[in-house]
């Protein structure tokens, strides 16, 4: 009788621990069948899987010019952050709305939404690369956002986005800043 009881307790304990292990899973890669629309809706996420997962960095270049005279603007502080587009669409915020993020990590990043600070050079340029991103879906989009700020206060602050898909190698964007004195 005592042994049956112990077996029963062992079954219960094992179930609890195994459920705990399953519920601690934080990665739904690489098969689309694990991608949930959201954590309440267990419907499968439709995706177009790449034959081979693509693990790559994306290169970006930003040129900042003065809108009035098209001359390069040096010394502009540019913060760069990146995030998978699906997370933006789902209003996923890793810290404030984490429940919107479940199952939406089809683009995997080692340092998701990291922010680095750059300053434009004398040609008004900054360039860099994102962290490595693992693309599994052909429709994966990664959005790089530039947070532009002029420490001297001569130009207005603005944000600009650049969107990469799995087969984008590098992208360049030119941004015109309006001089505050022109406002």
């Amino acid at each position: 009788m005592k042994k049956i009881f112990k077996h029963g307790i062992s079954v219960a304990v094992s179930t609890v621990f195994i459920l705990f292990a399953i519920s601690s899973s934080d990665n739904f890669e690489p098969s689309c069948q694990y991608l949930l629309k959201n954590y309440k809706d267990l419907g499968y996420y439709l995706c177009d899987l790449l034959p081979v997962e693509i693990n790559k960095q994306n290169n970006f270049k930003l040129i900042i010019l003065d809108k009035t005279n098209s001359l390069p603007v040096a010394g502009i502080r540019v913060g760069v952050s990146w995030i998978p587009m699906k997370l933006i669409k789902k209003k996923c915020d890793e810290y404030y709305e984490p429940e919107n993020c479940f199952g939406h990590f089809s683009i995997e990043s080692l340092s998701y939404a990291d922010t680095y600070q750059y300053f434009t050079d004398e040609n008004g340029e900054i360039s860099g690369t994102t962290e490595y991103m693992k693309y599994v879906d052909k429709r994966d989009n990664m959005v790089v956002t530039f947070h532009i700020e002029d420490p001297s206060g001569k130009y207005s602050t603005k944000n600009e986005n650049m969107r990469f898909i799995y087969n984008t190698g590098s992208m360049q964007k030119t941004i015109y800043l309006l001089n505050n004195s022109e406002l």
Binding site: F20, S23, S24, S25, N27, E94, E99, C101, F102, Y112
Partner: peptide, 9 residues
């Protein structure tokens, strides 16, 4: 941990 675990729901 950065990506949220299921139990956080």
């Amino acid at each position: 941990r950065k990506p949220p675990a299921v139990f956080q729901a």
